[in-house]
């Protein structure tokens, strides 16, 4: 009731107020500190960076400063669209050719070939994103239920704990050769859903996404308020309802803390895994540029570095946003 009356009052107020006044009001209430300081930080960093870069000479030329990196970013965008144009031109030519063939002879066999141009930077970004999300989802699908089981039952926890402690510190890159061999041996299909290289990278990511979620979920579940658990016992809630209505809502913050840690490490590991195994993705882009060794290579790698960072940041925000929609506590300060 009160909210509707408020909003209607706001509307009438807004329409009667002149636009200029409203703008002035918006400017006067604008929080400068939240914009000025971050911008200042970035600007100072760029200045220091360009100063330092001008003093570093490598065998591939001078270390790139912000300006070179910016221009290479443009080049990468241009290259992407050039490649896309080439691709559509290829398909147009193919189509025209096929139509001609059909016009001559309606029974002619038509060959449709896929365009096999080189992947652009943005193709690699998309591949990496798909890989990390797939690996992350697979890991979460295992980690959350197992974490809940560990948190609920002391026996399960004691059984799982040695395995968790031993496998957690292992760099997933150590698993990479094993995963590669296992996937090649077991994933044999006429029309595979996924590329093998995709699965290898994704499982490597999954192996390191497992632990933070599992451990945080277990801790979150084990630390649910004792009184709430007692309420559940008094009411005699069946286990499924108990988990759904008490355990899950109570441990959502910890589960999401785990998910955020998982995705962050998963993203870091993925780049390394792609570099090491030459699987398509951003890691391969970096490695290819390094092997390429042109005068632009360092700038292009630097673009990748910045993009990797931005994507990592964006992924974290996505999880945070998911937490905000799922969590019951809308007032909680998430950072």
């Amino acid at each position: 009731m009160s909210s509707t009356s408020n909003s209607s009052r706001g509307l009438t107020l807004g329409s009667s107020e002149p636009a200029v006044e409203r703008l002035m009001k918006a400017i006067s209430t604008f929080d400068y500190k939240s914009v000025v300081f971050p911008v200042l930080g970035v600007v100072i960093f760029c200045l220091l960076w360009s100063l330092a870069a001008s003093r570093i000479d490598t065998s591939l030329g001078q270390f790139p400063g912000p300006a070179q990196v910016y221009s290479q970013a443009h080049t990468l965008v241009d290259e992407h669209f050039a490649e896309r144009d080439k691709e559509s031109a290829f398909y147009e030519r193919q189509e025209a050719r096929n139509e001609k063939k059909l016009a001559k002879n309606p029974d002619a066999k038509i060959k449709i070939r896929k365009y096999t141009g080189k992947e652009t930077f943005f193709d690699q970004v998309v591949t990496s994103l798909q890989t990390v999300m797939f690996g992350f989802l697979v890991a979460s699908l295992f980690a959350i239920p197992f974490g809940i089981a560990c948190g609920l039952s002391d026996g399960v926890y004691k059984a799982m704990n040695p395995l968790i402690q031993i496998f957690k510190p292992v760099s997933p890159l150590a698993w990479l050769p094993l995963i590669t061999m296992v996937v090649s041996a077991t994933y044999v299909s006429e029309s595979p859903w996924f590329e093998k290289s995709f699965l290898v990278s994704a499982f490597t990511v999954a192996l390191c996404c497992l632990w933070p979620t599992l451990i945080n979920t277990a801790v979150g579940v084990a630390n649910v308020d004792k009184d709430l658990l007692n309420v559940s016992r008094v009411i005699k809630l069946p286990t499924a309802v108990h988990i759904r209505k008490i355990i899950l809502p109570a441990s959502i913050p910890m589960i999401f803390t785990g998910l955020r840690l998982s995705l962050a490490t998963g993203w870091m590991v993925l780049i390394a895994a792609e570099m090491l195994s030459q699987n398509p993705g951003l890691g391969k882009f970096v490695w290819d540029e390094f092997q390429n060794g042109s005068s632009n290579s360092l700038s292009r790698i630097m673009v990748a570095v910045v993009v990797i960072g931005l994507i990592g940041f964006a992924l974290d925000r996505v999880i945070l946003l998911a937490q905000k929609t799922v969590s019951w506590d809308k007032q909680a300060i998430l950072r």
Binding site: D227, N230, V231, R233, V234, K236, K245, W328
Partner: peptide, 18 residues
């Protein structure tokens, strides 16, 4: 424990999400 001996807790113990 069972609902025939329901408990009122000092900390109220209401589920904050319900």
């Amino acid at each position: 424990p069972g609902p025939d001996r329901a408990v009122v807790f000092q900390s109220h113990a209401l589920m904050p999400w319900l």
